[in-house]
Structure formats: structure tokens, C-alpha cells
Nucleic acid binder design. Structure first.
Length: 276
DNA sequence: CATTTCACCTGGTGGC
DNA sequence: TGCCACCAGGTGAAAT
């Protein structure tokens, strides 16, 4: 479900509610997926930690953890990737357990942090910062990348610009919705070869991405089916989608019917008149 | 190495 | 109502 704006919204919500709290007890529902770090080692590492802050990097949520009492230096990290259907929820211990709840972190305040993920594409990872490096996103941050660095990402590449936008090792955080929406706003066809785009095209794309992501964050993300933030609240940006999942509907600019094709194995939506 | 395709999962929807 | 095909916000391994 979640791309950069949804993950950002969730991270902010979780941060607001668990910052300064500490992890008293950890329960994992299953020892198979979604554990990038084995469940037992993860639970042992998490228990007793205080939560210093929660933030987003690309599509990952990073919880900075301290081992002592409310000190300020992070000694470990808990890294959550939500996959397609993952949710991170702050609840009370009494709140009804949803199906596919894979993790429950009991907090000293009496709250509970839960990870729920029906399709199990999500991943949970624990890093001990005494022994390993802190988490870095796989690619550049699309909200802050500069013109020069952005252009360099695509130079010489022979794949479709849509496929390049989805590649997390280039830009971290862009998924199917915001790839389509930014290409529409930049007036670019999704199948245009990335390495053949003019500098002006790339600059329009960089700004379109930055603006569409910022606007989506202001709206609390896009709720296409069941996405909710840490408080269970839906986002509203889906009301402002111009092409995504609007196949056959009139373009909001020129009334031409929106077309659906498949690029990089993903549904791709564009306006044949506005995008060249 | 760069690029493309497919498997991994569950659940919802729409056609017959 | 039941059954089935198809679709879904992601990603990494395997194939090309």
C-alpha cells in the first residue's frame, strides 16, 4: 500500500505517540517471514530499549532506540518496511487483535505498537549499532535531491522512465501511484527511455515529483483501498489523483480518456494527449 | 552489468 | 450463492 507520503504520514503519527516510551515486552506471532533479522534475536534486542524517535527513509520506517534510560544516543534501530499491505498501529493492549498481526510491542506507557500485514510482503529488521552500520536508504531522497544529481541518475539508462522511477536504488520512496502522477504532471509518457530525456524534461519531472509528494503528505497520503495511518485515519490524496486508477475516465485537463498500459510489470496510467 | 519477468502472499471484485 | 480469473500501494531472485 504505502509509498513515500503514506510512510511519512505513518512515521510522523507513530513518532508523536511513542517517542520517549520504552519497550517492555515483545511478542512475535510467527517465526517465519517477515523477519529479516531472526525473531528471537530481534525480540531480545528490542526488549528494554527506549524509543528515541521514529522517522522515514525512502519507504522504510526507522525507530531509533536507546539502551539506557532516556539517553540521547541511539544504540540500535528497528526498521519496518510495510510491503504492500503492512500497517503499523498504536493501540491499547485490549484492542481487538486483527488477523495477520505479526508483532506486538508492549510499551511502558501501557500502549502497544502493532505490525499487521496480510500479504506478508513487509519486513522487520533489527540493527545493533555497536556492531553494524545505521540504516541508509537504498537510493536518493526524491524530496530533496538536486537537479544535477537527479539528471545523473538516468544518464545512459535504456529502460522506461516509469521503470527507472520505481527502481529504489535510484530514488527511494517512489511507487506506482506517484510514478504515474509525477509523469502526468511533467507531461511525459511512461515509456519514454530514461536516458534519452532532455535536461528540461528531467527538471520538470524532478519538480513534479517533489510537489506531488509534498501535496500528498499534506493530505495524509492516498487511501486506495484500506490504507490508514498510525491512528487508523484514512488519507485524502486519492481524490486528487489525475491518472492513477482512472482508466477510461476523462483527463482532468483535456477530457481525453485516460489509458492503461503495463510497464515494468505494473499497471500504468497516462493521458495520451497531455503526455508526450 | 543492465534490464525484464516472475514468484512471493492474501483478499476483494466482477463476470458467469 | 459459488467458482474463477484477475487485480492490488513492493521487491528481490532468476532469467535474458
Amino acid at each position: 500500500m504505502p509509498e513515500l507520503p503514506e510512510v511519512e504520514t505513518i512515521a510522523r503519527g507513530v513518532d508523536a505517540r511513542v517517542r520517549g516510551d520504552s519497550i517492555v515486552e515483545v511478542w512475535f506471532g510467527s517465526h517465519r517471514e517477515p523477519f529479516k533479522t531472526p525473531a528471537v534475536r530481534q525480540a531480545r534486542g528490542l526488549e528494554g530499549c527506549s524509543i528515541l524517535s521514529v522517522h522515514r527513509t525512502g519507504k522504510h520506517i526507522v525507530c531509533e532506540l536507546g539502551s539506557g534510560p532516556a539517553n540521547s544516543k541511539a544504540t540500535a534501530q528497528w526498521i519496518v518496511h510495510l510491503g504492500m499491505t503492512g500497517r503499523l498501529l498504536v493501540t491499547t493492549p485490549e484492542a481487538e487483535l486483527e488477523p495477520h498481526t505479526h508483532a506486538r510491542l508492549a510499551l511502558a506507557s501501557g500502549r502497544e505498537l502493532r505490525f499487521v500485514d496480510p500479504r506478508r510482503f513487509g519486513r522487520l529488521e533489527f540493527r545493533d549499532l555497536q556492531r553494524e552500520a545505521g540504516f541508509r536508504g537504498p537510493g536518493a531522497e526524491p524530496m530533496t535531491i538536486g537537479a544535477e544529481e537527479f539528471a545523473a541518475l538516468f544518464r545512459g539508462r535504456r529502460l522506461a522512465i516509469k521503470a527507472a522511477l520505481l527502481n529504489q536504488t535510484l530514488l527511494a520512496g517512489v511507487g506506482n501511484i506517484y510514478a504515474d502522477e509525477s509523469l502526468f504532471r511533467a507531461g511525459l509518457r511512461p515509456r519514454r527511455m530514461a536516458g534519452r530525456l532532455a535536461r528540461a524534461d528531467l527538471e520538470r519531472l524532478r519538480k513534479a515529483l517533489r510537489e506531488v509528494l509534498a501535496q500528498a503528505i499534506r493530505r495524509g497520503g492516498s487511501s486506495v483501498s484500506d490504507y490508514v495511518d498510525a491512528n487508523g485515519v484514512r488519507g485524502f490524496f486519492q481524490l486528487e489523483h489525475r491518472v492513477y486508477q482512472r482508466t477510461g475516465e476523462p483527463c482532468r485537463v483535456c477530457r481525453t480518456p485516460i489509458r492503461r498500459i503495463v510497464v515494468a510489470g505494473r499497471s500504468t496510467h497516462y493521458c495520451p494527449h497531455c503526455q508526450r
